[in-house]
Computed example of a mutant assay.
Amino acid sequence: MNVLVAGASGATGRLLVTQLLNAGHQVKIIVRMTSNIPGEWQQYSQVNIIRTADITAIPVQEMAEYLRGCQAVALCLGHTMSFKGIYGKPTRLVTHVVQLLCAAITQNAPEKPVRAVLMNTAGNSNRDLNEPVSFTHKLVIGVLRLLLPPHADNEQAADYLRVKTGKQHPFIEWVALRPDTLINQEAVTPFSLHASPVRSALFNAGQTSRINVAHCMYRLITDDTLWHQWKGQMPVIYNS
């Protein structure tokens, strides 16, 4: 399978790329000019490293060329947890890249829909399901939406797939994977997927290891049964 990964140099993206390469898949990665990537990746003949100063500035036509022949795309993008990363431009990094990739896929008009897997967050509700949250939860989320651009970015990126792309797009199928509090672990461990949160991401958060997120994204991309179970949805992932 040919897979394009955006955000490949991040903590979760690196783990996903390694799993894809170890399984023998063809992988294109888009990273910043200054990003450090594992040296061992370049030992794989099936990796294509695309460096750019700003992924959001890539024209649709150019991105369409990168995507040509790809059966799946994975978005592991996020904002650096620094003042510049949180409040600096682009404040809608993830949303812009989702829009760009969807436009490029549509321009290519592939014979079979491309699978798009977005790494999102359990703090973002799936409004298709009218997930129940407390008044206090809604109040805090409203404040976060105003004060923390990355949260609003996560919401808008998922909403673009949910509303603009929808579930009947001729060229794109999607899953927005929602991990809870991210932690580091060395190996993949048992995890569970749920259509909606089973605990409060604000007041009773669970944990999800980055390597489990990466492995779930890998399985969604490569496992037809799992994909058809969750496509068009926003499953929440927890460590078991």
Rank of each mutant, 00 (worst) to 15 (best):
H137I: 04
Q46F: 03
R210I: 08
V198W: 05
V117S: 01
G142R: 07
T34E: 10
L20P: 02
S9R: 03
G142P: 07
N36M: 13
P170W: 10
I50P: 03
H169A: 10
L129P: 12
T222R: 06
F171S: 07
L15Y: 04
P197E: 00
V98T: 06
V3T: 11
N2K: 15
P149Y: 06
Q233Y: 12
N130E: 10
L93A: 04
C76A: 12
Q168G: 00
L15G: 01
R210S: 09
V98D: 01
N108Q: 14
P190C: 02
L77E: 11
V140E: 05
G24Q: 03
L16I: 13
Q61H: 15
R178C: 13
P179Q: 02
I30Y: 00
E131G: 04
V175M: 00
P110Q: 06
L129K: 15
I50T: 01
C70W: 03
I211S: 01
L101Y: 13
S82V: 08
Y66T: 11
T52R: 09
Y66W: 15
V73Q: 08
L21M: 07
G85T: 10
R199E: 11
N126G: 05
V31Y: 02
Y160S: 05
I55E: 11
T56P: 09
L75A: 05
F203R: 14
A6Y: 03
A11C: 03
W41K: 01
A6S: 09
S125L: 15
V94F: 04
T95P: 00
I237Y: 01
T222K: 05
K112L: 14
A57M: 12
Q46Y: 02
Q107S: 10
V31A: 05
G10Y: 08
R178T: 06
I58V: 14
P113C: 05
G85L: 13
Q46R: 12
A53L: 08
L16W: 13
L15I: 07
Q26N: 12
V213Y: 02
Q61R: 15
A116N: 06
Q43P: 00
V27P: 04
S35M: 13
N126A: 10
P59Q: 12
K138V: 03
Q107A: 10
P38I: 01
I30H: 02
L139C: 09
G13K: 05
S45F: 11
Q156A: 09
N154E: 07
G69H: 06
V188T: 08
L21K: 00
D224E: 10
N130S: 11
Q107Y: 06
N36C: 03
R32K: 14
L220K: 02
L193H: 04
A205K: 15
A11F: 13
R92A: 09
V47E: 01
P190S: 09
S9K: 03
E131W: 13
E155V: 15
G85A: 10
V188P: 05
Y238V: 13
T95A: 05
T106K: 14
L161V: 10
F171D: 06
A64M: 12
L67Q: 04
N2P: 12
F191G: 06
I172W: 07
V5L: 05
A158S: 14
N212A: 04
H96M: 14
F191H: 14
G24Y: 00
L146Y: 08
L144W: 15
K84N: 11
Q229L: 12
L4I: 08
G78P: 15
C216M: 11
G123Q: 03
N239Y: 02
I211E: 01
W230Y: 14
L75R: 02
C102E: 04
T225G: 00
W227A: 01
A72T: 04
D223Y: 02
Q71C: 10
N22D: 04
